[in-house]
């Protein structure tokens, strides 16, 4: 088991390196961040000294190599905009994003898992069609449009919930206040999570329901409910674990847009402003972090597989 985990981690290193190379290549195709500084009041000399300070006067592969070497020393560089260390900038924004993603994932699965199972158990009945249609609707609503609708009804019309930020300005932001701010963005993300997964869980459960051991259990005279609860659901855990692993990159992508909509002070907001301002060190930092998270969640999925299904041995 440990050997397997170690092997997986070692295999992930070249993938990570590859991702950073692709990132760097795309960014340097973009043109220089100095373009953003050019203006009537900025002299040639100032630009040249900036370029030298940031190492932008060197060839791209040298820049990449320098970045990589700094990274190995634990230094992600400094933001071109705020001059803050990138690690600090990311560290101070990662919390809200994790909170948002975590709550949305749990909420989404709380909708998707029961709905998927319900739909599978009642296959080809009206309620099955209703659940499946709802899941299609969920995965067809653009996140930003759902955000607009929620803001319109819950904020503007009914005045129930705040529509931007993480806490009310001027207050310290107690738990209740944060929860009130969290509701709308997490609903938007959870609807996305639920939409795709209801059908996935439905078909996974359907497959299990046709297994021989379930037929045996039923043939023994066990009640339908007990068969489903005791045998089917336990085996449906495996696909559910897979779903969680697959969800993370999508969820992060969704978070970028939702954070923009609700001014949620997380990594997505930092990313958007870094992207529009060509703040390379920050973009590289976020890309690296997200790649690590994705690879780590893949690994975790594999390990959880072994925990949930004792027949899997590594």
């Amino acid at each position: 088991m440990w050997k397997y985990v170690l092997k997986k981690i070692l295999l992930a290193v070249p993938v990570l390196l590859g991702i950073t190379i692709i990132d760097y290549a795309i960014m340097s195709l973009a043109g220089s961040p100095l373009d953003m500084m050019v203006g009537p009041r900025v002299s040639e000399a100032a630009l040249a000294s900036r370029a030298a300070q940031w190492g932008l006067d060197q060839p791209v592969y040298v820049q990449y190599w320098n970045w990589l070497m700094e990274l190995l020393h634990g230094n992600l560089g400094y933001s071109y905009k705020s001059y803050q260390p990138v690690a600090e900038l990311i560290g101070s924004h990662v919390g809200p994003t994790l909170l948002l993603m975590g709550v949305s994932m749990v909420l989404g699965l709380l909708i998707a898992v029961p709905a998927g199972i319900y739909s599978a158990v009642h296959r080809y009945e009206k309620r099955d069609y209703a659940v499946v249609s709802a899941s299609f609707l969920f995965s067809s609503i653009p996140g930003f449009f759902l955000s607009l609708i929620l803001i319109y009804f819950l904020n503007v019309r009914l005045g129930l919930l705040p529509s931007s930020g993480m806490s009310t300005a001027g207050t310290g932001g107690d738990a209740l206040d944060i929860i009130r701010h969290l509701i709308m963005p997490s609903i938007v993300l959870a609807v996305g999570v639920a939409g795709g997964n209801i059908r996935y869980i439905r078909s996974a459960v359907l497959e299990i329901l046709e297994m021989d051991y379930l037929r045996t259990a039923r043939a023994k005279g066990m009640g339908r409910k007990i068969v489903i609860r005791r045998h089917a659901l336990r085996n449906a855990l495996l696909p559910i674990v897979t779903v969680i692993g697959m969800q993370i990159p999508t969820l992060f992508g969704g978070a970028v847009i939702v954070e923009q909509m609700f001014s949620w002070p997380g990594l997505g907001l930092v990313t958007m402003s870094a992207v529009t301002g060509r703040d390379y060190p920050v973009i590289m930092g976020v890309c690296l972090l997200s790649a690590v998270v994705v690879l780590a969640s893949n690994l975790l999925t594999d390990i959880l597989y072994a925990v949930v299904d004792p027949t899997i041995k590594y």
Partner: peptide
């Protein structure tokens, strides 16, 4: 394994 909205945004 790339959150692809990031790639698209960049």
């Amino acid at each position: 394994s790339f959150p692809y909205i990031l790639l698209v945004l960049v």
